[in-house]
């Protein structure tokens, strides 16, 4: 029997790659807009996980320099804190993008009564909406 072991960092890298591939697949091929948005969230989280993984150290310690620590021992054993700090910002950015996308999806659902991308973003718009070609500024300022 073959014993198969894989260390935590490698596993995390594989997971992030899987996240990105699954996310790309969902964002490209799925029709439902909410599923598309979930796929996009997957891509973002895959990239974030990748960056977090960079700072990982097998058996490392929290990168806080406490009094009494040996500087060289600390340098050799602590995790790399920069990626963790960066990812925090990028998660916030991802969340706000997601929020805006979901908000637009809500508005479009009210307009078309459908969540299918083929209907709301494609060329196959329902005839009722297509016939009422609205010129700019005539829609009123309800969206303001």
């Amino acid at each position: 029997m073959i014993e198969f072991t894989i260390d935590t960092q490698l596993a995390a890298l594989f997971t992030s790659a899987a996240f990105i591939v699954i996310g790309l697949f969902a964002a490209i091929f799925l029709d439902n807009i909410i599923k598309k948005i979930i796929g996009i969230a997957f891509i973002e989280e895959g990239a974030n996980l990748f960056i977090v993984t960079l700072g990982y150290k097998q058996g490392g310690i929290v990168p806080i320099f406490l009094p009494g620590m040996n500087a060289e021992w600390f340098a050799a054993n602590s995790a790399y804190p920069l990626p963790h700090a960066l990812v925090l910002t990028s998660i916030v950015i991802g969340a706000s993008t997601l929020a805006v996308m979901l908000a637009i999806a809500m508005v479009l659902y009210r307009k078309y009564g459908s969540l299918s991308t083929a209907v709301i973003l494609g060329d196959k718009k329902p005839d009722i909406i297509k016939s009422g070609v609205i010129d700019s500024n005539e829609k009123g300022d309800k969206n303001e």
Binding site: L24, I28, T117, L121, G122, D123
Partner: peptide, 13 residues
């Protein structure tokens, strides 16, 4: 080069 999302994403990928 129309505004269709499928075509845009196809060329992007």
């Amino acid at each position: 080069q129309s505004d269709s999302l499928e075509k845009m994403i196809f060329y992007i990928i």
